[in-house]
């Protein structure tokens, strides 16, 4: 058995070198990692999660980032975040592809960890978020034009969004057909946000509004 191996043990010099360099490398890696990951981004605001997602904080922990829900989505609506603490977690960019509310919720079925609550079985009871008209002045329908695309595309038409007609005083002989979101019915699927014809959608999905308040005024 030869004894002239030089790498059998850790030499003092090597150890010191390692001990000095390693923390340096770690610190560098951390800094680099943090700059990529912990950038203030989507994770800090509202992120539209797939149907059945549990409360945001718990979701971040429960989701193991396996991407099975995304693979299960027939519309490729579910994407995975690629930065910040939500990295690898699924979200829906409704403006690109909204959730089309598959009746059998394949994404929920695919989730192994319960991050998407397996008790979610009825699409009507899904609460991903709540649609809001964020720019009333911009909304073509509220300006009196016959648009109402969000309303007609809404999978819960006449429930989650209804049209409230009122006289248009500007022309004196037409009707303003204002789309109104009903929070208690809206599932937050984002189809309206996807369909809005304006360059920046005036109807978007925001955090689920639990308390019903009436911000709808004439």
């Amino acid at each position: 058995m030869p004894k002239e191996r030089d790498d059998s043990g850790i030499s003092r010099r090597r150890f010191l070198k390692g001990g000095a360099l390693a923390p340096l490398a770690l610190a560098l890696a951390t800094a680099g990692g943090a700059s990529v990951y912990l950038r203030p981004g989507e994770a800090h605001g509202f992120v539209l999660r797939p149907p059945g997602a549990i409360a945001a904080r718990r979701f971040l922990a429960a989701c193991v980032r396996c991407g099975k829900c995304a693979q299960a989505c027939p519309y490729h609506a579910i994407r995975l975040q690629d930065r910040s603490v939500g990295i690898g977690t699924p979200y829906i960019a409704a403006r690109q592809i909204p959730c089309y509310l598959c009746p059998d919720l394949p994404c929920v079925k695919a989730c192994p960890s319960g991050a998407l609550d397996p008790k979610t079985t009825e699409v009507e009871k899904v609460r991903m978020g709540t649609a809001q008209i964020v720019d009333r002045e911009g909304c073509l329908s509220i300006r009196g034009l016959r648009c109402e695309v969000c309303y007609r595309q809404c999978p819960l038409i006449d429930q989650a969004i209804t049209l409230e007609p009122r006289h248009n005083p500007r022309t004196g002989e037409h009707t303003i057909m204002e789309p109104v979101v009903h929070r208690e019915k809206c599932v937050g699927c984002g189809v309206c946000e996807n369909a809005c014809v304006l360059p920046k959608p005036v109807i978007v999905v925001r955090e689920t509004v639990e308390v019903q308040r009436d911000s709808y005024d004439f």
């Binding site: 073509l140 009196g144 034009l145 016959r146 648009c147 695309v149 248009n168 500007r170 022309t171 004196g172 002989e173 037409h174 014809v197």
Partner: peptide, 19 residues
């Protein structure tokens, strides 16, 4: 844009007309 003087539509359009 919808023509305010247009007797039919008084400045309004539908979404097709808007684009």
């Amino acid at each position: 844009k919808g023509d305010p003087a247009g007797p039919v539509n008084k400045g309004l359009n539908c979404i097709k007309g808007y684009f």
